[in-house]
Structures are given as structure tokens and as C-alpha cells.
């Protein structure tokens, strides 16, 4: 670890709103719960409704899939491995074969918007978008009834007429909301994205009540191939603060998917900085998505993680 990084971690935490004990406790809240997670806990509860109309049960399940060779030495993605990772995760999540699992998620008559993320420093990988599209074609969804979009979603006819959404984006720290998450990925459905920035973007869960979105999301995929665990500057990006985690977190419940993503980022920050380093802005919106918007489960101790594949450096 570099001396300057160590110093950054310590001082940034202290300076932000942050010297007060209460603020520090809030920032570290998810970390505390993350430590109680058990590997591959069984989830007895069935996810019998795949949309956001689902009744939120007291527990949620996510799948964490990783593969040692999905990234090459230059971080180029092996599309075949990534496609299989996605299929394996969906199958594990739904408790059936990959084919049946996809059939359970999307109907051939659906109009499907794939909500991607085009942030140029860490975009949703094109090969992952393609893998999803390939699966939709296989299901019988025609080209005119599927589209990949991010910032154009509000004017894209497939999105405005969508009956189903698949939400896919990379995980990263974020200087305004603490972390860039599946919950946050719907901010471009708002006519005024900046209006969601108050209070560390606490109310982002409310985006999921917008008419363009409400009840349509079938699957959330948090891309953990090369997550960003720290950053500074206008873009909040430094290549040094990404690492090859080689994973995807997949789930129906966006809050649970994001909460587990945060646990992994926090574990990485602890490993890198040498001690527990709360995110510079607490990821308040994840917890508020549960407590205020009842969107899912934010407490990691109530989230069952099904792990598939490569275990080295799993951090959770």
C-alpha cells in the first residue's frame, strides 16, 4: 500500500461531516452487518413473483458468480465465459436450468428495455449487453421489441413501451451517492436527475416508483468484473482504484444486489487501505430504498448469497 493512499483513507474519513461519531456510525453501518454473512446460506423462501410487484419477504437471495479467466491479461473480456457466468447465475437464482430460468424471467411477447450504463470510465461491457440480447432472441423476443439504452431511455420507444426491464451496470464508488448501484441506474428515467442528489441521493429508491419503471424490472445485474473502490477528481475515477474481481452479482431484488456489492467494495477498501475505511459518502440510498420505499432487503444478514465459481479473493 502506498503511504499517500493510507493517508488519504484516514484523513478523508475524518474530514467529511465526519468527525462526529454519529456520522461515522452511519457510514460504517453496512460494514458491521457485512461481517455477519454466512457462505451459501439456504434460502427456503420462494421468489414467486419476478417483478417489483413482488411481496418483499424478510429475506432475499442474490447470486455471486465469478470466473478466474473471464478477463485476460489486458482485462479483455472472454465473451463465452461471461455468457456462461450469466446463464449459471440466472439458473442458480431461479433454481432451474438456464433455459427454464430465462423463460421464467421474460416472455416472448415482452417489450424489453436493457438499462445499461455508458459512463465512459467504466461502462456496462458490450459483450454482456450482447449476451442478454442473445438470450432474449432465443426466447423469441423480436429485434423491434428489445433495446439497450442508458441516457436515451426516456425517449426510446422500446423503453417507453417496455413491459420488462433488465437492469445491468458496473459497481463503483460515487462522490455524490457513495456508490453507483442498480438502484441508482434508473436515475436517467427522471426528467430532472439532479433533483435526486439531495441528502447523499437518499431517495433514489423512489425512482423505482416512476411509471416508466414501476413493476417492470425482471433482473438486476451488478457488474463486478473490475469494480471501482475509490476515486477523486471531477470524474471520481483513477485506474489504480479498480481491480479484477471477475464477478457478477445477479438478483431479482435490486436492494439486496447493491447491498452485497457494497460489502465487497468495503472489504476491498479495508484490504487496500489497511483498515476499515467507510465510503466518503455513506451509501444511504440502499438502506432508505428498503425503509422508505420497500424496494428490497438492505440488511446483508437477511440476504442469502449463492456463490458460484472462483473463490480466491472473494472478499465476502
Amino acid at each position: 500500500m502506498r503511504e499517500d493512499d493510507k493517508k488519504e483513507g484516514l484523513t478523508r474519513r475524518d474530514f467529511l461531516s465526519g468527525t462526529t461519531k454519529a456520522a461515522l456510525a452511519g457510514a460504517a453501518g453496512l460494514s458491521v452487518a457485512c461481517g455477519r454473512l454466512k457462505p451459501n446460506a439456504d434460502n427456503e423462501e420462494k421468489q414467486d413473483n419476478l417483478s417489483n410487484n413482488m411481496k418483499l419477504e424478510s429475506r432475499s437471495t442474490v447470486v455471486l458468480v465469478r470466473h478466474q479467466h473471464v478477463l485476460g491479461p489486458g482485462r479483455e473480456i472472454d465473451s463465452a465465459i461471461l455468457t456462461k457466468m450469466l446463464d449459471d447465475a440466472v439458473a442458480e437464482l431461479m433454481g432451474s436450468s438456464a433455459d427454464n430460468a430465462w423463460k421464467g424471467l421474460v416472455h416472448p411477447d415482452d417489450v424489453v428495455g436493457i438499462k445499461s450504463n455508458v459512463w465512459r470510465f467504466l461502462p456496462t461491457p458490450k459483450v454482456l449487453e450482447s449476451a442478454i440480447q442473445k438470450r432474449l432472441r432465443w426466447l423469441g423476443v423480436t429485434e423491434d421489441r428489445m433495446s439497450v439504452d442508458d441516457r436515451g431511455g426516456r425517449s426510446n420507444p422500446v423503453f417507453t413501451n417496455a413491459t420488462a426491464l433488465i437492469n445491468v451496470r458496473p459497481m463503483r464508488t460515487h462522490h455524490w451517492s457513495g456508490v453507483g448501484t442498480c438502484i441508482k441506474n434508473y436515475i436517467m428515467f427522471s426528467a430532472m436527475p439532479f433533483s435526486w442528489h439531495v441528502d447523499a441521493c437518499a431517495n433514489l429508491g423512489g425512482l423505482w416508483d416512476l411509471p416508466e419503471v414501476k413493476g417492470k424490472t425482471r433482473l438486476n445485474i451488478l457488474v463486478m468484473l473490475t469494480p471501482l473502490f475509490h476515486g477523486k477528481g471531477p470524474h471520481h475515477f483513477q485506474a489504480r482504484y479498480t481491480w479484477t474481481y471477475n464477478g457478477l452479482i445477479v438478483g431479482i431484488d435490486p436492494v439486496a444486489v447493491d447491498a452485497i456489492g457494497v460489502c465487497i467494495l468495503e472489504a476491498k477498501r479495508k484490504a487496500y487501505f489497511g483498515r476499515g475505511e467507510p465510503l466518503s459518502v455513506p451509501p444511504k440510498h440502499i438502506r432508505v430504498a428498503e425503509t422508505r420505499y420497500h424496494l428490497g432487503v438492505s440488511d446483508p444478514s437477511r440476504i442469502d448469497i449463492k456463490r458460484i465459481g472462483w473463490e480466491e479473493g472473494i472478499l465476502i
Binding site: 455524490w176 436527475p193 439532479f194 442528489h197 441521493c201 471531477p234
Partner: peptide, 8 residues
């Protein structure tokens, strides 16, 4: 250009 960071 920089979404939420623009506020700064």
C-alpha cells in the same frame, strides 16, 4: 459530463 459531481 459529470452527473452529480457537477454540483461541486
Amino acid at each position: 459530463l459529470i452527473n452529480g459531481g457537477a454540483e461541486v
